[in-house]
């Protein structure tokens, strides 16, 4: 921990270290207090409150007194098909977006890691949509996915007019449109993280592999992938959590939030609808707690299967 100095007599070192610890501890409080107070007030207390509200019939504004209802809110949600529809929508979105977006990001990162002219320009272009806030991105794509919009114009050209769905009003295609927007807007960020990891893989390993006669694919499989393992795990975990939180796109893109016919209703849309739209804080909190547990379990499972290796 400390750098060895020319050894002074033992006792003095000791005294100095003790006084150092004391002054450190004093300053530590100074450094920690602002963050600790804010985290306590705005993360820990609300989280505890969410757990408490979820076992009461709390409402946003209500003349009736709040009453303890036990696990009624949970029972009600778990028996409600709307809740399960929302969960199913979350899982089908995440199940598709997480692998596809991560694979796409890796492909982009490998491309801009090649020795080609203009790779910085391409990297910048691929990242640009990340700077477009989701509310703006969703709005632009609503217009693009209009039944008479640009996307259909292109598709009609390619399929000779046989395929032009009304994307955002279709129970099949609305979710697809949301997937496209999410990937378009988010993939550049994963690319940057994976690119940084690619550039950290020591060249010697590639050279050694080449000497052993490994081709491009074998080098990718046995040098690149193990070399960026930790970054891949990070990207997969974060993308999963963000995918589960899906809210902005299904709220902004269909004609009504979560529509049409609840085919884009996600857990978060459901929660906000209950807690804010219908002012049922208790029921909304129950959804929040269930949602937290699911994300927690997913994160733990992912960590378990994709254990990080210290010296990958």
């Amino acid at each position: 921990m400390t750098v060895a100095e020319a050894a002074p007599p033992k006792r003095r070192v000791r005294r100095r270290r003790i006084s150092r610890l004391k002054s450190d501890a004093r300053f530590a409080w100074l450094f920690l207090t602002p963050g600790a107070v804010l985290l306590l007030l705005f993360v820990i207390v609300p989280f505890a409150a969410a757990i408490w509200f979820s076992v009461t019939n709390q409402r946003l504004i209500s003349p009736l007194p709040t009453r303890f209802v036990g696990l009624d809110n949970y029972r009600e949600q778990l028996g409600d098909s709307l809740f399960w529809t929302s969960m199913w929508n979350n899982f089908r979105f995440a199940g598709f977006v997480v692998p596809v977006q991560t694979g796409f990001a890796l492909a982009l990162a490998v491309m801009v890691d090649q020795n080609v002219r203009g790779r910085v320009l391409f990297r910048t272009i691929f990242f640009t949509p990340v700077t477009v806030v989701m509310a703006a991105a969703a709005t632009i794509w609503v217009l693009l996915f209009n039944v008479n919009g640009l996307v259909n114009g292109l598709l009609e050209l390619i399929t000779l007019g046989s395929f032009s769905p009304d994307w955002l009003n279709s129970t099949t295609w609305a979710m697809v449109a949301i997937v496209v927007v999410s990937i378009w807007q988010g993939v550049g960020f994963q690319m940057v993280i994976l690119l940084a990891a690619l550039q950290d893989v020591p060249v010697e390993r590639y050279e050694a592999a080449a000497i052993d006669g490994a081709g491009t694919w074998q080098q990718f499989r046995h040098v690149t992938l193990p070399g960026i393992r930790n970054a891949l795990v990070f990207v997969l975990t974060v993308t999963t959590i963000l995918a589960m939180r899906l809210f902005d796109q299904p709220t902004l893109m269909p004609r009504s939030p979560g529509g049409p016919l609840d085919t884009t209703r996600t857990a978060m849309v459901h929660m906000v609808d209950l807690g804010f739209g219908r002012q049922a804080i208790g029921r909304g909190s129950a959804v929040a707690v269930i949602f937290f547990l699911i994300v927690l379990v997913l994160t733990v499972i992912q960590r378990f299967f994709l254990r990080e290796e210290i010296n990958a």
Partner: peptide, 19 residues
């Protein structure tokens, strides 16, 4: 541990506290 708590899970109680 706090990193895992999504803000969305806090939104409803925070809204209530804010109100």
């Amino acid at each position: 541990a706090l990193i895992i708590i999504p803000f969305e899970a806090l939104a409803v109680p925070l809204l209530f506290m804010g109100a």
